[in-house]
Amino acid sequence: MSMEISPQMFKRLEHDGQPAEETLCPSVGYRQNVWLRLKQNKLAMTGIIIIVLLALLALVGPHLSAHSYEEQDLLMVNQPPGGSYWFGTDALGRDLFARVWYGARISLTIGLLTSVICMVIGVLYGGISGYLGGRVDEIMMRFVEVIYSIPFLLYVILLMVLLEPGLKSIFIALGIVYWQNMARIVRGQVLVLKEQEYIYAARLLGAGTWRILLRHLIPNTMGPIIVSMTLLVPEAIFTEAFLSFLGLGVSAPMASWGVLASDGIQGLRNYPWQLFFPALFISITMLAFNFVGDGLRDALDPRLRR
């Protein structure tokens, strides 16, 4: 049997000016897609709203109170919440409402800045290590492991002694401690991506290492980077609170949430609100950032793309 192909077998397609697939499903960009899926995640949206609210209150909160965060009234120490002191006062008669929101500024700044510092160091380090590979990769990753094996607290305390306690040294200390995770994640991603065809293509076209790293590899690892940044914010806030507990935090009369909680615990038996409010906001912030982080992870994961 033979089959003859004749022009009669073909029929001209009516051309409507649209590619066929797109009639089936409207085109949705990557970012839009992520946003759409994030919007459907109720927990993540709650988290975002809470973070925005907290940030707003951190900006305007201290001005809402009639008292400044550092103003002491030694005749009004340890007042319970109510009246002109909405959250009560501390052991030196300072308004806790103003102090909580002033503390929010410091704590949120610490959280955000630390994660940005970690991102910059971690992405560059991990990117270079993963892309260059071979002996460079070996040495760079062993170095990370060595740092990783030093107990965190020992390391931070040493740094704080060297740097004199204060806001700046907290950034540096936390930045130095937390970038390693970021570096590992980025390296893992880059190791996979650098075997992709488009990277070969770019290299064939004569792109240099830096161009490939910065224009092709890193933008494509942005998903995991953003997720781990979001999760790093609460971790940094919590670590700062923990350092304040040990007396290594910001110096008085400035107060982060950690300092407030640490002061508050001394009066736990008789003046519980002094611990309650800072602890409440530390918890809320940690939850909110964790919800957003989880939501982002789900939304950014291409395998879950519908």
């Binding site: 550092e70 103003e71 002491q72 030694l74 052991a91 030196l92 008085a252 009369p253 001394q266």
Partner: peptide
């Protein structure tokens, strides 16, 4: 704790 409070009060 108490030295810190005294110092903060005097600072103010």
């Amino acid at each position: 704790g108490n030295h810190q409070k005294v110092a903060e009060a005097i600072q103010q």
